[in-house]
């Protein structure tokens, strides 16, 4: 069950939110890179998302304490940026660019194909937790439109067949 705030009730109860000693050292190192340690907030939130899977409210509060910020200040930041997930996400993120060049090259068709193949709508995660589907703004690879980002990788020149091959590679 997903709670109203977008977090998973079971996850909230079971997973203690805490960085390892090594990660805390990394947090400290990141904070030391900047004239004001608050500048390390985005890097540390990235680290938190890698560690805990998504940025739950507990994670926000935990990170806030690492920076002597109020949780509201961290919540402002987390809700502002699109790359922070506030609810559990799939093991893979498939983000299709839907901006102008990709649109001209058939992005709506690619999104429709993915929705059919995955059986989910944009913004949703497959029941097996394999894939979260997104439709996103310009990823700046318009020369290869239509394109999408799959986790860390850019996938170019998409066709339904190519999309199917990519999906097969996602476990």
């Amino acid at each position: 069950m997903r709670g109203q705030d977008g977090t998973d009730a079971a996850t909230r109860a079971s997973t203690p939110v805490a960085f390892s000693v090594e990660q805390l050292a990394e947090v400290h190192r990141l904070q030391g890179l900047y004239p004001d340690r608050r500048a390390a907030l985005l890097p540390v939130l990235h680290l938190a998302q890698e560690t805990f899977g998504y940025v739950s409210l507990e994670v926000e509060a935990y990170v806030a304490a690492l920076f002597d910020l109020t949780p509201a200040h961290v919540h402002e930041v987390v809700t502002f940026y699109t790359l922070f997930f506030r609810a559990p996400k799939g093991r893979h993120i498939v983000a299709v660019c839907h901006n102008l060049s990709c649109h001209l090259a058939g992005a709506p068709m690619i999104v429709a194909h993915l929705r059919r193949r995955l059986g989910i709508d944009v913004g949703e995660t497959t029941d097996d937790g394999r894939v979260t589907l997104q439709s996103v703004e310009c990823l700046c690879a318009c020369e290869h439109a239509p394109m999408m980002q799959v986790d860390d990788r850019y996938e170019f020149g998409l066709t339904p067949e190519k999309v199917d091959r990519i999906l097969e590679g996602l476990r």
Partner: peptide, 22 residues
């Protein structure tokens, strides 16, 4: 200097609020 409030989200979905649960 208590910092309870924030403006969350962005664009025309921006809204004033508290960190949930506070």
């Amino acid at each position: 200097r208590t910092g309870e409030l924030g403006i969350f989200d962005r664009g025309d979905h921006s809204e004033i609020g508290l960190f949930p649960g506070t």
